[in-house]
Amino acid sequence: MSALRVLVLAESSATEATPISLEQVALARKLAEPSGGQVSAIVLGPRSSDVDRQLISGGADKVYAAEESISYDPDVWVATISHLVSETSAGVVIFGHTSSGSDLAPRLAFRLSGSIATNCENAAIENGMIVATRVCYGGKARSVLRLSRNPAIITLRPGSLTPLAPDTSRVGETKSISANTEKARSKLLERKQEDVRGLRLETAKVVIGGGRGLGGPEGFKLLEQLASKLGAVVGASRVACDLGWCPPSMQIGLTGKTITPDLYIAVGISGASQHMAGCAGAKTIVAINSDAKAPIFADASIGIVGDYKELLPKILDEIQRLNS
């Protein structure tokens, strides 16, 4: 088999690659290694040399970076990535299954007449072809697909793989690329992004989730109190977001955030597959639910059947007592 070139679209802040980007690089390494291939990362948003170093020590051989951050526009980004795919003869392109990854990957697949599998947990090479395992049917099933056209394009669900231990002895080069802006067709009128410094759902060690069972936005205040005691981040089911009790950015699940904490405490959440798709990677799940038959108890390792309104104040007291 000829040396396989794998390209990763890395996302980062000005100083740090996102955790999913490092998972993508780890997967790329696994796919490229057997054929003595190469892993390149492309960074179009904000970055610094710290980001390049992180990607290289995480497994990338090359970083293609825009000199200046290119404002997100799917047409411009896809044109730029597509150009690089052709230039480097990449056989596989790995995106994160993030809002931009799932926006870009299908466009690129059609532009290059390749194959695509979104929402993947893993991928491997079999007989020279990419075989990807993806989450489907609202998290209830997995499908294994052979991607028969070139390039194979994948979006990887956050929290599916462990990034490689950083190897600072690895060397790699950064090459600068320029944006292909002639293809722009959309006009950005406004962008509002929440400040994501500090604790984030995606990386928190302890997460507390609230659902419809909280009965209203007031219930979330109780969760916030518990979270501040535990250094935890509060998330929610989609129903709680759809009801306007909390912003969509707090949604955990198939189309929300994927969390991988050591501890997830789910309060008043029934455990629908679409919700569990976002938290199945939690090491310990504690479910607090008034209905002993709620499906969440099949996914939790510790369960309490009861009314959260009675239990949470007592749990807060108990933590207070232990801490003092």
Binding site: L145, R146, A287, A300, I304, G306, L311, K314, D317, E318
Partner: peptide
Amino acid sequence: ASQELIRLYVPIKEKHCEIIGGTSAGETAQ
């Protein structure tokens, strides 16, 4: 066609849930 379905399956859950509960909310919390 651009792809071929090789396998469709339902992942097996191996979790066992331990239900805890005392005689009062306070005891359960503890």
